[in-house]
Amino acid sequence: MAVTKPDAKDEAGLDAGTLRELYRNMLRSRLLDERMWVLNRQGRAPFWISGMGHEAVQVAFGMNLRPGYDWIAPYYRDLALTLVLGMTPKDHLLSVLARADDPNSGGRQMPAHYGCHRLNIISTGSPVGTQLLHAAGLALASRMRGEDAVAFTSIGEGGTSEGDFHEALNFAATHRLAVLFVVENNGYAISVPWEKQMPTPDVADRATAYGIPGVVVDGGDAMACYRVAREATERARRGEGPTLVEAKVLRLTSHSSDDDQRRYRSLEVLEEEKQRDGVLRFRAQLEELGVLKPGDAEEMRAELVRELDRALDEAEAAPQPDPDTVLRHVYAEDR
């Protein structure tokens, strides 16, 4: 059975600074994500695929990882995670506008195919689930060198139907590798609800079969996510092996900019989910706790919007890739 963590409000043991940082990271990702949709709807960006509703668990893990030391094999909804680790709104705007200086891929891949060499975020492609095995290999190499680096990898619940999901958990658990498997379960594989993907509601239950902890956490509860992330990361770093974390998150947008979820989900449910938005919930929680004073959230937002505006101006002014570079980097150039 998966272990369901109790509400963590009173036991998170987080100081005000950490709580503010959590919120700021979530808001920063949300504002950038919203701007991506605007650019898409304005016809300035051909494609966007969102992480709205997934921010809390990503930020929680990001704040517990060591950027540039730990290894990251993310998936396409991990915008917030990459920002916490050190990527910038400008990096991702360069990507969504397919500019030459995009650090993810130099404008070669669709947006949200994350990768950043200096931060050990490996390049990710579009096939679903392959990255979990890469994470196992990343952790294997660290282990063989005697390092205590951990490998974070994530996937939607849709991807857990892939064979690579099983193969990666099986391998990492067999060798007690330091892999954090994070399932961001938003209940939908594009249009297919979880009931048609799997026989039981909790992906974390499957951890039992691999003899590792399986943890379900409310992906809208930032403090609970932080505590689970800290525990799983510390466990992995101590050499005690992988953890399967399942965050129940909301998909507050359609699958991608090419999808319209109103065709297959009820408007009532979509409206109700907006009310459960983790960013709003966390703000209310922090205001209640006095961590955010009146006006703090607005001030934070204004500062982040200024950063975003600057980043967009710079990204739009950046050059597109030179067509003469299309043949480069098929094989290593410094042989």
Binding site: W71, A73, I122, T130, L132, L133, H134, A135, A136, G137, L138, A139, L140, A141, S142, M144, R145, A151, G163, D164, E167, A168, N170, F171
Partner: peptide
């Protein structure tokens, strides 16, 4: 598990092996 063999090898290669 062949996908495992190659997928893990890719990860190890990305991390210096």
């Amino acid at each position: 598990a062949e996908s495992c063999i190659v997928g893990v090898a890719i990860g190890a290669a990305l991390n210096g092996m």
